[in-house]
């Protein structure tokens, strides 16, 4: 089958795949909220605009916190933070995973062995324990630092999966041909091997994206998140610290959780959909 025909086929299955469509629509809606939501905020972020807690009303779309801050403003800005962490953290993890996986799977030998040991070491150290110790000594932490830390600690499983794929591709005919024609290793990796596992890399990124969001939310909640700004995890942290649970201020702690669950869940479902699109064995006939 020729190349353009194949692409059309994927597109055809992608358009027909319910899981992929539902997941993509949900993620898209939340992206729109994160981009355009702040334009509709009536109150500045984290300012004490009301005397105390208020349930949702026409004035405060999503109510106010126990301290009188606008929940809507926190929510839309926090959502933006969530996507930034996902893109930077998940993107960095995917890139590192690609680098280690490609080189290990393609080169083999002792290079592979050393990379494998490093991968395994970072794989067993729980990300968050590592962050715990790093974060404890940083006085000021921003979203960027948090995302980079997450990216630096969550690449191993991606590296492993990509290594296995590369390994099987590295012994194919077209790669041998490229080797014989004297192409440089890096060029072979990115010209010949990477394009052949594009779908796989994309799915890895989606999973890393979702994972980074969840990790960030957990860190923020434990109190290891950014010291400035706002995120959905921080909102939950503030809500618990502000006894929102005991006092029944549900509008404060329910929305951030719903947003995280919806975005991450939608990403996972998209991933299943993509798997079905790219893997004919799983297609429902």
């Amino acid at each position: 089958m020729s190349e353009p025909k194949k692409k059309n086929e994927f597109l055809y299955f992608a358009m027909r795949n319910g899981k992929l469509k539902v997941g993509a629509v949900i993620v898209f809606i939340f992206v729109l909220i994160a981009i355009f939501g702040p334009k509709f905020a009536r109150y500045p972020l984290n300012e004490f605009v009301a005397g105390g807690p208020n349930p949702p009303s026409a004035d405060f779309y999503m109510g106010t916190t126990a301290y009188g801050q606008d929940v809507y403003a926190q929510f839309v800005y926090g959502l933006g933070t969530t996507f930034i962490v996902g893109i930077i953290g998940g993107g960095l993890a995917t890139l590192l995973g690609m680098l280690v996986g490609f080189v290990g799977g393609y080169k083999g030998g002792w290079v592979d062995e050393v990379l494998n040991i490093i991968t395994n070491i970072i794989l067993v150290i729980p990300t968050f324990a590592l962050l715990l110790i790093m974060v404890a000594y940083l006085k000021l932490r921003g979203v960027l630092i948090e995302s980079i830390f997450i990216g630096l600690t969550s690449w191993p499983w991606a590296a492993r999966a990509i290594r296995a794929q590369t390994f099987s591709l590295a012994n194919r005919e077209f790669v041998d041909l490229a080797k014989l024609s004297g192409m440089k290793t890096m060029k072979i990796l990115f010209r010949e091997i990477a394009p052949n596992m594009m779908s796989y890399l994309f799915m890895t990124f989606i999973l890393q994206f979702g994972g980074a969001i969840l990790t960030a939310a957990t860190l923020d909640f434990i109190g290891l998140g950014p010291t400035q700004g706002v995120s959905l995890g921080l909102m939950m942290n503030w809500a618990t610290n502000g006894s929102a649970l005991l006092l029944g201020y549900w509008w404060w702690f329910v929305p951030p959780g719903i947003a995280i669950t919806a975005v991450v869940g939608a990403l996972y479902i998209m991933n299943v959909g993509l798997d079905e699109v790219f893997n004919p064995k799983l297609r429902e006939m």
């Binding site: 979702g210 957990t218 995890g233 939950m236 618990t240 669950t261 991450v264 869940g265 996972y268």
Partner: peptide, 8 residues
């Protein structure tokens, strides 16, 4: 699986 533990 997408639910953050603490939120649940």
């Amino acid at each position: 699986t997408a639910t953050p533990y603490m939120w649940l």
